[in-house]
Simulated assay, not measured.
Amino acid sequence: MDKSTIYVFIDEAPNPVLELEAPVNFELDTHKLADGEHLLKIVSRDPSGKEGIRKIPFVVRNGPAIAVEGIREHEVVDGVLPVMIHAYGKGDSRSFLIEGSETPQSIPLWIWVLIITFAAWTLYYLIRYLSMN
């Protein structure tokens, strides 16, 4: 019985990275790809010569993650902006590093509002309790 042939392409490469008979199991090593958007194109050709194509877009992010606070994409800005940039890698998967594994961020406004509201509520009830005695 003849089997279909599977051709696997990465991005717009003219030559396939894999050419095997179906069914196919393989490991895609993303370390060989640059960070960013890529396309996995799978072409199947059956014994009669008919072709099927499947395209799967994916994003590679092997390098250190970059966190930026203070400016967003396509934001309209004016004046002097305080911008905080932090880049951190995943490190070695065999060991866990505490230092540098977190992204420092400022405390969001809603948390400040929550803390101030709770403190004011506590102070109000403390004053009411003391004035009753």
Rank of each mutant, 00 (worst) to 15 (best):
K3Q: 14
Y7K: 09
Y7N: 05
Y7S: 09
V8W: 02
F9M: 04
F9L: 05
D11M: 05
E12T: 03
E12Q: 12
P14R: 10
P14Q: 13
P14D: 14
P16A: 09
V17D: 02
L18A: 09
L18N: 09
L18F: 10
L18V: 02
E19T: 12
E19H: 00
L20V: 00
L20M: 13
E21V: 04
P23T: 03
V24G: 01
N25H: 11
N25F: 10
F26S: 08
D29E: 14
T30C: 06
T30F: 03
T30P: 01
T30K: 06
K32I: 10
K32E: 15
L33G: 03
A34N: 15
L39P: 00
L39S: 07
L40F: 07
K41N: 11
I42R: 01
I42M: 09
S44M: 12
S44A: 15
R45Q: 12
R45I: 07
D46N: 15
D46C: 03
P47L: 09
S48K: 14
E51W: 01
E51V: 04
G52P: 00
I53G: 00
K55A: 11
P57V: 00
P57K: 04
F58K: 04
V59M: 13
V60S: 03
V60A: 05
N62P: 01
N62S: 10
N62F: 04
G63L: 03
G63H: 02
P64L: 04
P64C: 03
A65S: 12
I66R: 15
I66D: 07
A67V: 08
V68S: 10
E69W: 08
E69F: 08
G70Q: 10
G70W: 05
G70K: 06
I71P: 05
R72E: 15
R72S: 15
R72K: 15
H74A: 14
E75L: 11
V76R: 13
D78T: 03
G79P: 02
V80G: 01
V80T: 11
L81S: 02
P82E: 13
M84Y: 10
M84T: 05
I85C: 05
H86N: 15
A87L: 08
G89R: 05
G89Q: 07
G89H: 04
K90P: 03
R94L: 13
R94K: 11
F96R: 08
E99S: 13
G100C: 06
G100K: 06
G100I: 05
S101C: 04
S101R: 12
E102A: 14
E102M: 13
E102I: 02
T103R: 08
P104I: 07
Q105G: 08
Q105C: 04
S106P: 02
I107C: 03
I107M: 14
L109D: 08
I111D: 11
W112E: 05
V113P: 00
L114I: 01
L114T: 07
L114V: 00
L114H: 00
I115F: 10
I115Q: 06
I116F: 11
I116E: 05
F118C: 14
A120V: 13
T122V: 12
T122Y: 12
L123A: 15
L123F: 09
Y124V: 12
Y125R: 15
Y125S: 10
L126I: 08
L126D: 08
I127G: 04
I127M: 14
R128A: 15
R128V: 11
Y129Q: 11
Y129S: 14
Y129F: 15
Y129A: 15
N133G: 09
N133L: 12
